[in-house]
């Protein structure tokens, strides 16, 4: 039996890796992967807590989060394709036509 604290520690590590990835990487695809990692770290915490409490609401939450993440990525990829068509690059450093 793995103690609850280990799951939470792992989820904290995953969340940190995801957050760092968002801040450091410049390719939107990798950034979206990092955001997925952050969402999944929350999912892991939900499931671990849900198991520890014997409450199902945490597990239900995870299903909804997965659905939301899929929808978000679908919209994100569509926007990246649209940006690539007009700008011919998807580097986030190049997205600077709006500023001031």
């Amino acid at each position: 039996m793995i103690p609850l604290a280990w799951y939470i520690a792992l989820s904290a590590v995953l969340f940190t890796i995801g957050a760092l990835g968002v801040l450091v990487r410049r390719n939107p695809l990798v950034i979206f992967m990092s955001i997925e990692l952050m969402l999944n770290s929350a999912n892991l915490a939900f499931i671990a807590f849900s198991h520890a409490f014997g409450a199902l609401s945490g597990q239900v939450f995870v299903f909804f989060v997965m659905a939301v993440a899929a929808a978000e990525v679908a919209v994100g990829l569509a926007l990246i394709v649209a940006i690539f068509r007009t700008k011919h690059t998807i580097n986030v450093d190049e997205m600077n036509s709006l500023k001031g």
């Binding site: 939470i8 989820s11 969340f15 995801g18 957050a19 968002v22 979206f32 955001i35 952050m38 969402l39 770290s41 929350a42 999912n43 915490a45 939900f46 671990a48 807590f49 849900s50 520890a52 609401s57 945490g58 939450f61 989060v65 978000e72 994100g76």
Partner: peptide
């Protein structure tokens, strides 16, 4: 997406 992921992590800890 970034801020809602941060908030979701907060919600998971709140649940915990």
């Amino acid at each position: 997406a970034l801020t809602s992921a941060v908030m979701l992590y907060g919600l998971s800890l709140l649940f915990g």
